[in-house]
């Protein structure tokens, strides 16, 4: 097996959904690759297929045709448990709505992915603490979600995504629920993480947010409309 520098390789990926008696194409013959260490913004209007692309490379969904390789593994060849393991070990998710467990401390939230590790990690709590320190929440570990601001909650979510040292961070509109000042701080955090070697794929419709990435992929009607490299903001 050849070692590829690419973390993600999509070849001829299509995804059809049935909506009633209509077939909707959410991805049409998408072929692209993302190398390790890249910082990619995926853009496009709603319905353009950017979320589908995100779900496909996040191993949450399977394509109707075509192949997706993530970290050298062909997702089409993995069963449900192997996909779960891939999500657990290789991919970190950050969502627009944070998706923290209610009435649960930041530390417990961050430890959640570790509880699904096989075998169990003995240093789960230490890892979670380090991860929270990394996002600047060392003094908020025992706070529950409702005691944290939106920006802090999203940082907890990022700490949770990072706790298992993933190769890929997938962020779906991570600033969508934040005010602009907080959003800016969060984007700085993502840039820092990318500089430390983490591959980041960010879905957004906000050009300012997308501008911080070094590569922008635009989707329209399930197809890649443009794929441009920029220097990023930094």
């Amino acid at each position: 097996m050849s070692v590829s520098p690419n973390l993600i390789e999509c070849t001829g990926v299509s995804k059809l959904y049935r909506m009633g008696d209509q077939e909707v194409s959410a991805a049409r013959d998408v072929t692209l690759s993302i190398a390790r260490g890249e910082y990619v913004a995926v853009m496009g209007p709603s319905g353009s297929g950017k979320s589908t692309f995100m779900n496909l490379i996040g191993a949450l969904d399977v394509p109707t045709s075509g192949h997706i390789r993530v970290a050298g593994k062909d997702l089409g060849e993995l069963d449900g448990n192997a996909l779960a393991q891939l999500r657990n070990e290789t991919i970190g998710f950050v969502f627009q709505q944070f998706n923290l467990l209610a009435r649960t401390s930041a530390l417990q939230n961050v430890m959640l992915p570790l509880s699904y590790c096989r075998p169990q990690r003995a240093d789960a709590e230490d890892r979670a603490r380090r991860s929270l320190e990394r996002v600047g929440l060392a003094d908020r570990m025992q706070h529950v979600s409702s005691q944290l601001s939106g920006g802090q909650q999203q940082r907890v979510a990022i700490a949770r995504a990072l706790v298992n040292d993933p190769a890929l961070l997938l962020a779906d509109e991570p600033t969508g629920a934040l005010d602009s000042a907080t959003a800016e701080e969060l984007m700085k955090l993502l840039e820092e993480l990318n500089r430390s070697g983490l591959t980041i794929v960010l879905v957004t419709h906000d050009p300012e947010v997308a501008a911080s990435a070094r590569r922008q992929i635009r989707f329209k009607d399930g197809k890649v409309l443009s794929d441009t490299l920029t220097g990023g903001n930094s």
Binding site: G80, A84, F93, Q97, N99, L101, L112, Y116, C117
Partner: peptide
Amino acid sequence: REIGLRMAVGARKS
């Protein structure tokens, strides 16, 4: 949503 999140962070169906 909690179930979806758990699946996203690596929970198996089992």
